[in-house]
Structure formats: C-alpha cells, structure tokens
Amino acid sequence: MRAVVLHEYGGPDKLKYEVVPDPVAGKGEVLVRVAATSVNPIDYKMRSGEAKEHFPLELPAIIGRDLSGIVREVGEGVRGFAPGDKVMAFATKTYAELVVVKATDLALVPEKLDLVHAAALPLVTLTGEQLITRGTKIQSGQTVLVSGAVGSVGRSAVWTAKKAGAVVFAGVRKSQLKEAEILKADHVIALDDVAAMERIGFVDAVADTVGGKTANLLLAKVKQGGVFASVLGPPLDAKMHPTVKVEPVQAVPDAKTLKTLAEDLVAGRFAIPIDRMVPLEEAGQAQAAAAKGGIGKILLLA
C-alpha cells in the first residue's frame, strides 16, 4: 500500500508519500480500505516533535487519527462487521490506504452520511463530547462557557452541552459573532471584547479549547467549586484558583458515542465545516494550511 511516512521530526516536507507493507488484521481487529482521513492539530504537532513528550513516535512512523472507509477483512473473533461495510473510527496510523483498527473502536457510518465526509468526525466530535461529559460533567440547568466555540471541537462541545440541558455560552472572537449564531447557544460572547467579558457572571464550568491568556481569563469566571476542563492542559494561573477543579481531557475512542454524534450531525443538530479535500500525497501542504488556522476540516483522500 501507499502511505504518508515520517522519517524524522520537522516541517511538512518531512512527510513522504511512499510504498510500505500492507498491515494485517489480528485477533479482534478489522482491516479497512481508507476512503479518507483528516488533518488535526495533533498530527502536525506529532510531525514537528512538539508533542513527542506525550505522543512519542517510533520513527519511521505513519501518523493520523481519523478514518472512514470500507471493511476489507475481519480478524479472528470479530462480530458485527463484514467486508463491504462502511465504517469510521478514531484510530492511529491513518495517513494510509489501509489501516488496522480494533473492532471495538469501529463504528458503522450512518446511511445518510457521505463516507468521505465521515472522516472529519471522529477525533473532533469525541474530543468535544468528552470535554463536556468527562471534563465539565455539566448537569441540566447549569451554566457552561465553551471557548473556541466555532471550531470543530467547540461545535461538538456546544451541542453536547445543549443536549445535556445546560445553559451554554459560546465563546468566540468578535469577528466570529455572526458565524456563531448557527450554533444555537443560549448566549454568544466575544472573548476578545473586554467590556463583554466584564459583563459575564460566574459560570459552573468552562470547556476550553483555546488555552493561553484566554484560558486564564476564563478560569477567573468559574464559580467556587466549579470546573475548568481543557483539551490543552491546565492554565498557567491554575494555582491561583484553588477552589476550581481543573480537568485535563484527552480524547479516547468510543464507537457508540461516535455513531450517535454522527447521527446527530446527519439530523442537522450541529455541523463540522469542511474546507477542502485533497489527495493523501498532499498531506504536507494540507498540514501547513491547517496550521495557519481559521479554516474548516481538511480531508485527505486515500
């Protein structure tokens, strides 16, 4: 098969499109012919070496976390999947034509969801969902502020919080206020507007997807005994707010929830914007574009 291989840490040019041995499905695993994968920030952080402390690679390596495709073979003991099934997963080594996935991490693609578009969902939707359910643990009637709400993870978090019955503040930049109306949050707040920030009262929880100085500002908005959950680690000022529980969140595979989120998306309850679709061999250029920010998901077609 062909795959995008990283031989050494560095820039996008370090990603090489080349022929590698086909993977083989073992016990409890499924071999998937990939239709598409997608670019996520963790991909280029792993490529550059920025994330090697928490996500070390044994080089040469194939990176990538999302996939959608067609089941080619099932390993020993696998039930519920058969060759020809359309599937998606939060997996590893997905910048490739063939990927082996644990059957327990694999979900069937809903009938009305385009197979290629399904590749945009696994990492971002599960991260947003788990930021709320495992991070904030928000309850019906409580208030939660989601930062970076128009991003893919933020959109998923807003929907999950609304689904839980929470009162949701969508935190965005002033330039994104109009775009944020589609989220159907209870309130939309410009996090880069000092006056708007001063008007925010205390909230039960913050679901943070942006980090940095904004995270420090939002930490001060969490009431005593509240929760600050983040996908980017604790804010620098965390020790100054000992009554706030800081919850770091790192997404894990959850096939059942992934399928439910995909069904919610098909039903129009939330959306994950797709900016462009490019061939897998252009993974380096795609990562460079994604790293600049401000765009929807980039899909890589295998």
Rank of each mutant, 00 (worst) to 15 (best):
K213I: 09
A36C: 05
V124P: 00
G225E: 10
S68N: 07
N216Y: 00
F202S: 14
D114M: 08
F169G: 07
S175A: 13
V87H: 09
L123A: 13
E111A: 13
V153M: 00
L15D: 01
K162T: 01
W159Y: 15
V167I: 15
M46P: 00
A118T: 13
G26R: 07
L177K: 11
G69R: 09
G296R: 05
A91Y: 08
L15C: 04
Q142R: 04
A161C: 08
G293Y: 02
G69F: 06
I138G: 02
V116R: 12
L236S: 15
T209N: 00
A195R: 11
D22M: 10
A89G: 11
V172Q: 00
A96K: 06
R269M: 10
A61H: 02
Q139L: 14
V249H: 02
V30Y: 06
T136M: 12
K292V: 11
L15W: 06
V100W: 08
L232E: 04
P122V: 11
L217F: 10
V203Y: 05
P21H: 06
L123K: 05
P83L: 05
P83A: 08
K256Y: 12
G49K: 02
A238M: 13
V168C: 05
T127K: 02
P248Q: 10
V244S: 06
E76A: 11
M197D: 01
R276S: 15
A215L: 01
K259H: 11
L108P: 10
E53V: 14
V188E: 05
K45T: 09
G296E: 04
G171K: 04
E281H: 14
V167K: 15
G212I: 01
L217G: 00
Q139C: 07
E76V: 09
P83Q: 06
L57K: 03
I272Q: 05
E58M: 07
E179T: 13
L67V: 07
A170Y: 10
L6E: 02
W159T: 07
T94I: 07
V109R: 03
D264N: 13
V150K: 08
A166T: 04
P253F: 06
L57P: 01
Q285N: 15
A215S: 07
S152A: 15
D193K: 10
Q142N: 01
L123T: 13
V249E: 03
A61W: 02
D204F: 08
L217I: 06
L258A: 07
A288Q: 13
S140K: 15
I272M: 11
L59C: 02
K245C: 10
D237M: 13
A205W: 03
V39L: 05
A255F: 07
L67R: 10
V87C: 12
V206F: 05
E29A: 08
K213W: 03
A25D: 01
L15Y: 06
K256H: 12
L131A: 03
K245A: 14
A220R: 15
L219P: 00
K86W: 09
R33P: 02
L108D: 07
E129K: 10
A89C: 12
V20H: 08
F202P: 04
K178D: 14
L98V: 07
F228S: 03
R269K: 15
H7I: 08
A166Q: 03
G49E: 03
V124T: 09
G268K: 12
Q142W: 01
A82E: 14
M1Y: 02
I189R: 03
A271G: 03
D204I: 10
G128M: 09
I189E: 00
V24A: 13
Y9P: 03
T136V: 14
P56N: 08
